[in-house]
Structure formats: C-alpha cells, structure tokens
Design a protein around this nucleic acid. Structure first.
Lengths: 133, 133
DNA sequence: ATAATACCTGAACTCAACTTTAGGTCAATA
DNA sequence: TATTGACCTAAAGTTGAGTTCAGGTATTAT
C-alpha cells in the first residue's frame, strides 16, 4: 500500500494530477482510511494503463469508462477487447501519419541544408513550384 | 488568388480556423484588398506546413516564429534548418513512443481474447502479477 | 427593393487537462 | 508547545486551440 506522495514519485506525476485522476473517477475501487487515499498495485497498474491510453488518444472520460468496465468484472471483457482493437487501429494510423510528417521534415532538412550552402533558394524553388502553363 | 472560403474548401479547414491562424500571425505576408484577405499559393503552402508542424508537436506561437523567419529571407536559413533538425528528433521519438504504446495495446488485445475465451482472467493473471516472496 | 451570400471584426465562450490557491486535519519533531 | 510535513477539499485559474456570437459591409440574385 502506498500514499499519494509515494505513488507520485513512483510514476513521476505531480500529486495534483493523481488527485485530479481520482476526482475524474479513474480509480473506481481506490480505498481510503480516514480520508487518506491508499493506493495498491492495482492503482499503479491503472496509472500505467492511463499513460498508455492517453498516448493512444483516449480522453480522461473515456479512460474512466474503461476503468469502470475493469471494476465490473468478466461481463465487460468484450467491450474491453473492442476498445483495444479500436485503439490499435487509431495508433497504427497515428504512426502512419507521423511517418508522413517525418518525410516532410526530412525533405525540409535537406532543403535548408541546400539553401544554406547556396545562400538562396533559387535553385531549390524549381522543385516546389506549382506547375505552370 | 483565393478568398478565405475557397481556401477553407481546398484545405478542409473551417473558415474560423483560418481567420484564427491569421490573427495569430501565421501569414505574415498575407495581402488584403479593401479589408478582404487574398490568399496566394504561398499561403496554401503555409497551411500545408502548419498542418505538418502542428502534427510534429509545435505550438501555434512557434509556428508563427517559423513563418516570420520565412518572411525574413535568407538570413534565417540556419534557424529554420535547426528547427527542422530538432523536430525530426521530436517526431522520431514520438513514433518510438507510439510503437511502445502499440505493443502494450497488442498485448491487451491478446489478453482480452484469452479472457473472453476462458471466461475469466485466472490463468492470465499469472502473467501480470507482481513477483512475490 | 430586398433578401441572400460571402466577407469582416472584436469579444466571449468552449473544452480538455491540469495546476494553483486557500484553508483545514493530523502526526511527529525541535 | 509550536511548527513542520504529508495528507485532504472545493473552487478558481491557466493554457492551447479553436468556435461562436453579435453586429457590420459589400455584392449579387429575385
């Protein structure tokens, strides 16, 4: 069992953020003793999932739903599976988009290396100009 | 030359967003005739770069700086190159992180497929439990 | 002539995800 | 005994990126 301060150090998050997550309902089974939160392995695991799901693009409210499904037991396995199947697609698409962004950035790196060497963009502009006539 | 409405359709953005970008200084050389914005190829190109730079993680204010450098000419090639070299790293790291997220999600897909087949997580829990004793 | 469009502005509003503030409890230490 | 430190709350504030609103102009269609 951990206090909020210990958890904050373990997961490298500000205490205020963990309290905020709790207020938003991200730890539906969190226990307290005389007002003080008592975090278990379960909540640490939840915090790891929260980071992952956030990066995958889910909003806090959507993560809350997932955490509630987890608390509801085996009746929600299907929903949870569907969520992950969906997020898999989302993340795959995110990566694809970022790879296109990276291509564009690579090109710009090359472009400005040339521009810097040439002292101008005259030669380069022929690559990017809109086709005429 | 295009009006704001034409540009909105071309780049699939709401007019309000394009006005907002203009207010934030993202088109430093945009021209107007009697108050009405006149967009050229230059601004269309800028809008494409904005999308790319946004996805790479830059804030509007940072993009504004870049657009100003572009307007300043050859004296800023080095700054621009440094920006892209930096963003290249940022995007590469973003992709790496998303790949880890994807791994986690793949595992969860497998996990819930098993849980669904088993009807419980009893067998699975042995994979995720914290080492004891 | 009037009404529908497409443009314009400044200011207020929204949303998500936090963070900060102000005030309070409780246990241990100087 | 008093103050320090770790916890608590509710409520207000912040940031970023827009969106919406209320009101105005100018041109075109009925």
């Amino acid at each position: 069992m951990y206090t909020i301060g210990q958890v904050a150090k373990l997961v490298h998050l500000p205490i205020s953020t963990i309290r905020y997550y709790d207020k938003e309902g991200l730890f539906p089974t969190l226990e307290r003793t005389s007002g003080i939160r008592k975090f278990s392995e379960k909540e640490l695991e939840a915090l790891r999932m929260i980071e992952c799901l956030k990066k995958s693009g889910l909003k806090i409210k959507e993560i809350k739903l997932f955490m509630e499904w987890c608390a509801q037991g085996s009746s929600t396995y299907e929903k949870r599976l569907e969520l992950f199947l969906h997020q898999r697609k989302v993340v795959e698409e995110k990566i694809e988009k970022l790879e296109k962004v990276l291509d564009m950035i690579q090109f710009k790196c090359w472009y400005y290396e040339q521009a810097l060497a040439d002292g101008n963009e005259d030669r380069l502009k022929t690559y990017t100009e809109t086709p005429q006539d």
